[in-house]
Design a protein around this nucleic acid. Structure first.
Lengths: 333, 333
DNA sequence: TTGTACGCGTTATCAA
DNA sequence: TTGATAACGCGTACAA
């Protein structure tokens, strides 16, 4: 009726009627029922966000970026937590579908092994944008960093110290970031003419405990086959690596250099400040949200790769001095 | 129709019909429209969570606890960010009301000065549970720590070092946690027979920059009127305090001891590890969610105060040695 | 066991 | 400018 027109600021309403409606609405504490609106308009102004991890580090910051953009556009967020499991992720996707969200932002869980859930989403026409941990080849956009290139730059820096034996705590190989960072690692070694010892590449999860366990394996090698430096899949894994090295009575970076990936909030505070590749979580979240809104608005149709810039943060765990400048000890060059 | 019965697992359906429905549903990729369900049943299985802060520290962890409980109960979360502003908080509340959430979990923003928005929510019969930063006297439940007692215990510990002049970076006094922590601070001084110098109590916000600014004011006092120890409203403010002390060329805890409140993830990693009151964010989130679900289920009607236990975490910024034991230097006792 | 009628609160369409 | 009617997709109540 007329009430609808007033509340939606439609022009063709008499000023008196309008005033009356507004007054009465206020008196009754009336709130438009957005559920009914959604049903009628087939639009919820809600976006689903699925993250594998909630608490520390990268994701809260990314969510803040997402929230910033979506809030300004009048959208709201349903937050789902996959807890790194494929089952909960599938569950989350189904729920969001049922809730008829206008789009989904998703960062893939660690143990996802097939595309099916994503493909089905795409088939149903639900706008989907991956961020950080992408799944390619299914026509969904991806907002992330250039993992391959970033890993290459990071590895180059480690190589510049003159280290010969370099280990890699590789991420899960069914995830893009696991594969691509490993590829970047390999290519940096190759361009440097450094032999890549496959025993120094061990698969690791994303948690500190994973990094600890994987590093212990490397440290169990005979001394002459042990890595002189370790490149971890992310910062938490690097923390685990540092802990493992120290627990073995060795020093960082004196005996084993360690570098991470993310520039987590704790990285500069570590017993030996962590050299790492800064991944701008907030900006990445914003970019992902912008991409999704564009998709929802129908502005863009094809899937797109959005690359957010990383930057090398040099501290001292790599063997550089702690003033942040790039100064591999001369003796090793 | 019969389809509804099948999908809701009602018993009185022929097995064959049921099988047919399920098969067809799968074939069509059918997803029940929860919007329509919600409209018909007047129930959304959605809970609104309003936090003043998203990224670091306390809230992501609390959200994880909330998510854990609500997920298991079949509820989902709409996450809203008030950014410490009353305006955005009011906005969030209105939106959640429009979205007909089944209940709201809220931690009050820093600059909220009146109860009106909350009262209106209560009047409309929307279950509301505060967590961490509560507003009392409006009939809503509150899940938090015992701020008064915790601050007292913390202050007692600082006093035990023999410090006479103790400063307090007090939180906003219109928020419960600001008032109660200050009250606990005062009562510990009183029971110790220590004079409370009002010039050493300065109001501070919750951010590192706020703590920095407030501490600078204290350090601007003539040397004989400066505090020998500072109790900050929370950990980030304590980080700011430490930075201010160091920036003035003074040492922590040698010249000025500093303690925080929260046990943020960075507390043990500070240049001088921070003594602080541990606030179990995850457990607090869980308790708050449980309380809200009970309210929604109508199990409880009256408002309730749920108190989650804190514990004193002794590191070295208070002047204790760094092994975590309670050992105020003997010379000062 | 199955199907029909109605209502949930809104928007869209068309008529008054 | 305003009002009536039919959707939107489901659950409830009752009839077949």
């Amino acid at each position: 009726m007329t009430v609808s027109r007033v509340l939606n600021r439609r022009p063709n309403v008499d000023d008196e009627t309008r005033a009356l409606v507004l007054k009465t609405a206020k008196r009754l504490g009336y709130r438009p029922n957005q559920i009914a609106q959604s049903l009628a308009m087939n639009k919820t102004f809600t976006i689903g966000v699925v993250v594998p991890e909630i608490s520390h580090s990268f994701f809260p910051e990314a969510i803040r970026g997402i929230e910033e953009v979506t809030y300004n556009a009048g959208y709201h967020l349903i937050l789902m937590h996959s807890a790194e499991t494929a089952k909960r992720e599938r569950d989350a996707i189904q729920t969001l579908e049922s809730k008829r969200v206008d789009g989904i932002l998703l960062s893939a869980a660690q143990d996802v092994h097939d595309d099916q859930a994503y493909r089905q989403l795409m088939d149903m026409g639900v706008p989907l944008v991956f961020f950080d941990r992408c799944v390619r080849g299914i026509g969904a956009s991806c907002v992330s960093i250039d993992d391959d290139e970033s890993a290459r730059v990071l590895t180059r820096h480690v190589l510049a110290h003159g280290y010969q034996r370099i280990g890699h705590l590789a991420g899960p190989q069914h995830l893009s970031i696991g594969r691509e960072r490993l590829a970047g690692f390999r290519s940096a070694l190759e361009e440097n003419g450094t032999h890549c010892d496959e025993t120094l590449i061990v698969e690791s999860g994303f948690h500190e405990s994973d990094g600890y366990a994987a590093t212990m394996k490397l440290l169990d090698l005979p001394e002459d086959r042990r890595p002189r430096a370790i490149i971890a899949i992310n910062d938490p894994a690097a923390y685990g690596a540092i802990k493992a090295v120290l627990d073995r009575g060795l020093s960082v970076p004196g005996d084993v250099a360690v570098v991470g990936f993310s520039d987590d909030i704790r990285a500069p505070l570590m017993p030996v400040p962590l050299t790492t590749m800064r991944q701008p979580a907030y900006e990445l979240g914003k970019a992902a949200a912008e991409r999704l809104l564009a998709t929802i608005a129908g502005v863009v149709h094809a899937s797109e790769e959005v690359v957010v810039k990383t930057s090398l943060v040099i501290r001292s765990s790599c063997g550089c001095w702690d003033d942040g400048s790039f100064q591999p000890p001369a003796s090793r060059l």
